[in-house]
Amino acid sequence: MSGRPALFLDRDGVINEDYAYVCRRQDFVFVEGIFELCRTARQRGYLLVVVTNQSGIGRGYFNETDFLALNDWMCRVFATEGCPIDAVYFCPYHPEHGQGEYKKDAACRKPQPGMIRQAAREHGIDLAGSVLVGDRESDIAAGLAAGIGRNILYDPAGSSSARPVKGASAVVQSLAAVQAYL
Results as ranks from 00 to 15, higher is better:
L9I: 01
D139T: 13
T80C: 04
P113E: 07
F28W: 11
M115D: 01
C91G: 13
P5D: 03
W73G: 10
R121W: 12
E101S: 13
Y93C: 04
I15Y: 00
N63R: 06
A176R: 11
L48F: 07
E32P: 10
A146R: 00
M115E: 03
S138M: 08
Q173V: 09
E17F: 10
C38R: 04
R59G: 06
N63T: 09
R76A: 15
V51H: 00
D155Y: 05
G158V: 12
Y154G: 03
R150S: 11
G124R: 00
Q26V: 03
S130D: 02
V77Y: 02
D27L: 09
I34V: 15
D27K: 07
D105Y: 06
Q179S: 12
G33S: 07
A79D: 11
H123K: 13
S2K: 13
S138H: 10
A145R: 15
E96L: 14
K104M: 13
F78L: 05
G134H: 08
Q43K: 15
A119E: 00
G58K: 03
S160G: 08
E36R: 13
G129M: 04
T80D: 14
Q173W: 05
C91K: 11
V29I: 15
L70T: 05
V133L: 08
Q173C: 13
A41D: 04
S159L: 12
V29L: 14
A120N: 01
E137S: 14
H94R: 11
V29Y: 15
L144P: 04
A168M: 10
F28C: 05
D135N: 15
F35G: 09
R11Y: 00
R150I: 03
S161T: 11
D72M: 09
T52Q: 00
S2N: 13
Q118L: 14
Y89I: 08
I125A: 00
